[in-house]
């Protein structure tokens, strides 16, 4: 058991993650051809617009459909769909917590591949200043609130206020780059259009295509560019403290060397600075565990599942990874 634990703790987590992401990408983007269906409440961007190949559907799409509901129906059988959808989402989230983002999300994988491309092209990457980072963190919560409120407002017009147009029924999906990017991997470019049928549709689809253009450039120069704005990440963050997979820190062992912060794609400063909290899952964290791999202090950072350590910072593991890197 001790040897197994030492082996796991010495694993090159980055390589493991790359292969896991590839597997998850194939599963969620292509396994529909094999009739695999993981349901429509997944806590990742398994885009529902990928009609042919999807192996499951991102929870945000049904959530927007389910909140497109009259107020009185919230207290009828129709609310059952909303409840069961959320419970399924919650059950998935309970298992992997925010590691869904780091290991499973297809859009996250695409961004990581673009980062790898940038490295090959020897382009310099950008980071946000601390003030920009603090400001940007709020965007995803605003998007989350809007994607729930707008469909609800369509079904519940308020007298005296202008009606919200039906073309905003799935407001986030219309502007989400995954709607265009993920179906493209199965050769489906049908979402790459502007819809001229109404002013609202035109504005929303233009916004979507503009965000796609920004996404391509942003993801090339900034690690996990879109994840800072992702409302799924915000939704996960609301429940991440009660999930089974956790990232723990023993502040007493931390030397504040800052290695964990330097390797963090999401620029989470608290991982280095905070020596008080035992559980350190920030809302932007994607639980990639690069921080654990970069930590040289024995047992300082660890990922636990139901309290059992599954991946832990060890001196031996740290030096093994360093040697491997030096040998490459």
């Amino acid at each position: 058991m001790k040897r197994l634990r030492a082996f796991v703790n010495g694993v090159d987590i980055q390589r493991f993650r790359t292969w896991f992401q590839l597997f998850a990408f194939v599963l969620l983007v292509y396994s529909g051809y094999l009739y695999i269906d993981l349901g429509n409440s997944l806590p990742v961007f398994a885009c529902g617009f990928n009609d042919a190949g999807r192996g499951g559907v991102c929870y945000l799409l049904p959530l927007q459909h389910q909140t497109h509901i009259p107020w009185e129906s919230l207290f009828s059988w129709r609310a059952l769909g909303l409840v069961t959808g959320f419970l399924t989402f919650f059950a998935w989230l309970l298992v992997l917590n925010k590691a869904w983002c780091g290991y499973v999300c297809p859009l996250g994988a695409i961004q990581d591949w673009m980062t790898a491309l940038r490295r090959r092209l020897r382009l310099r990457y950008s980071v946000y200043s601390l003030e920009s980072f603090t400001r940007l963190k709020k965007v995803k919560y605003i998007l989350l609130v809007l994607l729930i409120l707008i469909p609800f407002a369509i079904s519940n017009p308020v007298e005296g206020l202008p009606h919200v147009p039906e073309d905003m029924a799935t407001p986030f999906c219309t502007i989400c780059p995954a709607r265009m990017v993920i179906p493209a991997f199965t050769g489906d470019f049908s979402q790459w259009t502007l819809d001229f049928s109404t002013v609202t549709a035109l504005v929303m689809t233009s916004l979507g295509m503009a965000i796609l253009g920004i996404f391509f450039v942003g993801a090339l120069v900034n690690k996990r560019f879109f994840c800072f704005f992702c409302p799924m990440s915000a939704l996960q963050a609301l429940f991440s403290n009660i999930a089974l997979l956790k990232l723990r820190k023993d502040g007493d062992k931390c030397t504040r060397c800052g290695d964990c912060y330097r390797v963090c794609d999401m620029q989470i400063k608290a991982i280095a600075d905070d020596v008080e909290r035992k559980i350190l899952i920030e809302d932007d964290c994607m639980m990639c565990l690069k921080c654990v791999a970069a930590c040289p202090e024995e047992g300082c950072l660890k990922a636990t599942f139901m309290g059992i350590p599954v991946y832990e910072a060890t001196e031996e593991g740290f030096f093994r990874r360093q040697q491997r890197r030096g040998g490459e």
Binding site: W192, T193, L194, F196, T205, S206, M209, A210, I211, L212, G213, I214, F216, V217
Partner: peptide, 10 residues
């Protein structure tokens, strides 16, 4: 037009 908007934004 879709590609145009995307390329302009990029």
């Amino acid at each position: 037009y879709g590609l145009g908007v995307m390329l302009l934004a990029a």
